[in-house]
Nucleic acid binder design. Structure first.
Length: 236
DNA sequence: AAGAGATTCAACCGCGAGAAC
DNA sequence: GGTTCTCGCGGTTGAATCTCT
């Protein structure tokens, strides 16, 4: 048995969207609002899968989508957020107004990975590579054996304090690297989390059994878990 | 100028989670 | 409480474009 297909594949278009299809989707979404993706294609007269419509709207047609190059500040913010959240592109995108998860994911894979490697940092774990010839640390996630994955892989870390020490140094505790000032003396990357004083129950709810905190849970429960980041240039 | 290889990025796929029934 | 439906997410693909030789 299994899951029923999300749409009638035989009667759906695939591939690049035409201007006519875009216009239909925009008109329908303006008239009826976002959502109801499953029934939208038929209602809007589109021969598309509902998932395809949703993706097209969210990534390209939504009026608040920001197109164009990423700024240096956005670069640094993405790197920082990736180091704490991992490949949670949707969470990262929520902190970059106008950017979509797909766009950030593509940008990461095409540009930031290389940028980090240029700096001598592992793009996956944000730790300093031992040497440019150390193939272990440059393996992609597909080829890296489980036992080679360092302790800090997931955003959930056993010790919050250690987590932030790690974060601010930008490298593995075992293998201390130059301070951030040495690499980017003009950038002030101050990372802080502030928990709402009045939301202890929700905070408890969002804590896992072992006492670590799931940032997504905070977000989803409407609790304000703020990761504040300052990217300052010119010593401001 | 042309072909090959590399890069980019829009779109697709499969799965998990939560809601609805 | 179990099943089905819907949405959203992350990983992957492949056509288009760019760069190199």
């Amino acid at each position: 048995m299994g899951r029923s297909p999300c749409c009638e594949k035989a009667h759906t278009n695939k591939g690049a969207w035409t201007p006519e299809e875009d216009a239909r989707l925009i008109a329908h979404t303006r008239a009826h609002g976002e959502g109801g993706w499953r029934s939208l294609p038929r209602a809007a007269g589109l021969l598309r899968c509902g998932k395809s419509c949703r993706l097209r709207w969210i990534n390209y047609l939504r009026p608040d989508v920001k197109r164009g190059n990423f700024s240096e500040e956005e670069d640094e913010l993405i790197i920082k957020l990736h180091s704490s959240l991992g490949s949670k592109w949707s969470l990262i995108a929520r902190r970059l107004p106008g950017r979509t998860d797909n766009e950030i994911k593509n940008y990461w894979n095409t540009y930031i990975k290389k940028k980090l490697l240029k700096r001598g940092l592992d793009h996956q774990f944000h730790r300093r590579l031992c040497s440019p010839h150390n193939s272990n640390t440059t393996h992609s996630s597909r080829s890296a054996p489980e036992h080679q994955i360092p302790a800090f892989q997931s955003p959930r870390t056993p010790e919050i304090a250690d987590f932030f020490q790690y974060e601010l140094s930008g490298c593995s505790p075992i293998e201390p690297a130059a301070s951030k000032d040495e690499e980017h003396p003009d950038i002030n990357l101050d990372l802080c989390i502030s928990l709402p004083l009045h939301s202890t129950t929700a905070a408890n709810k969002a804590s896992s059994v072992d006492g670590t905190v799931d940032s997504k849970s905070y977000y989803d429960h409407g609790v304000c878990c703020q990761i504040g980041l300052q990217v300052n240039y010119g010593g401001c």
